[in-house]
Design a protein around this nucleic acid. Structure first.
Lengths: 227, 227
DNA sequence: TCCTGTGTTGACCGTATGGTCAGGTTTAAC
DNA sequence: GTTAAACCTGACCATACGGTCAACACAGGA
């Protein structure tokens, strides 16, 4: 059970120090590249083994670095883990743009489903890390749930309620709709292994397209919309 | 990363030795009770901390037993873990009865959804353990996926295909439908913490009923059925 | 009452893990 | 060229963990 104070603020990624007015610099570029390698390796290992099962040695090996080097870039295992979780969370938030830019429920919700399916396909490891974190009671990102995610949720629920009030979709509880979208799309990442076994192998491009169409179709029809 | 040979066969629970022809015996009853305590504690701890994060000491404390006693009833941490995973899997299989006994898609699929929602409510810890196990690549229950679950899946898919052929429901891919049902129902257990945060507290009885109705309604409408 | 098999447990052990650190190397500003 | 900061890493440490074991308690059949 991770310690996890959950106090830290989200790092938006642009932590360029103001005084570094020189050229971007090989130093900084190199640092970013190595941090990226470590984060990628960590995401993989955390996804496969969980926080408790992951070891800094495994991550170091996968990143091709000595273990001590990891602790130079990330002070603790938990700090590294936090960065991995933050990354997938930011990616998911960005998927909401397809939601917002839409002019109606079919395009908005359909586009959001497509975007989330695409993320499940591209970042399955990140999705698993997030899932495990939430399942364990969100010891590290509790504050995001209570602030960013909650606000985000309420905004989308308001949009959905407006569409319902305008008679543009069936009157469903917006919360359960959102949860259904999250559950269904993320299932293809989190339970990807089970899906591959039942599918008799990895999903092909066509399989993914069919999955996307199927999920979008079922949900939109469930909302009284014609996909 | 657990070792997990995945070779073991499923224990159906009736491991009464044939020669123990005496009365059921306090001995045997006591043994079962203690095993049950340990399994319940283990399920809780595995769900909260993951396999790697769980410790035999934590489980022992929760069960109110000395650690060494755990190893008397379960030889290794992994053996104990396996029993926990098997338990939820059997429960899920039983939920299929509502599926089979139905005379049509609305009752069959609707009943199955209700049953799975009820399980999510009653056994959230077990569901989380299963989810984590699959997410980590099913190191311990790979054989169930390839045998029992696969067979089960194909049988239900055949039923759904038959209903579709009879024109009793919309022509959807049965696999994606099953996965959607699993994803949506289990989400209420696996992501229960997130749901509680967004809900501003635990789901009430009415909330659960609304969730059930909402999920069943959306999916059945998505299948062209009237719930 | 003895005796045997079942259960109980504190103390212990080997190992693996997260993290530290001193000493070294490279970079880049002047 | 000099210097200071940033970067790198093998060796090391304290701790926590899964698992073992020997000694003990106790039930119940003879």
């Amino acid at each position: 059970m991770q310690a996890g104070t959950g106090t830290g603020r989200m790092q938006t990624g642009d932590d360029t120090t103001a005084e570094a007015a020189t050229v971007p610099g090989r130093r900084e570029a190199n640092r970013r590249e190595i941090e990226g390698q470590i984060l990628a390796a960590a995401e993989q290992v955390f996804a496969e083994a969980g926080f408790g099962g992951a070891t800094m040695q495994l991550i170091a090996d996968l990143a091709g670095l000595p273990k001590a080097n990891l602790h130079y870039y990330f002070p603790t295992k938990e700090a590294l883990y936090r960065r991995v979780v933050e990354r997938i969370f930011l990616i998911w938030l960005q998927a909401a743009e397809s939601f917002d830019a839409a002019e109606g429920p079919a395009a908005g919700i359909g586009g959001y489903i497509d975007a989330k399916m695409e993320i499940s396909r591209r970042y399955p490891a990140g999705s698993k890390v997030w899932a495990a974190e939430v399942m364990h009671g969100a010891p590290v990102i509790q504050d995001y749930l209570e602030t960013t995610l909650r606000d985000w949720s309420e905004d989308r629920q308001a949009m959905i309620r407006a569409w319902i009030a305008e008679g543009r979709m069936a009157p469903v509880d917006p919360r359960h709709l959102l949860w259904m979208i999250w559950a269904t799309t993320q299932h293809y990442a989190d339970f990807g292994h089970q899906i591959e076994v039942l599918n008799g192998g990895p999903l092909s491009d066509a399989d993914w397209q069919a999955a996307k169409d199927s999920v979008r179709g079922m949900i939109l029809r469930g909302l009284g919309l014609t996909p």
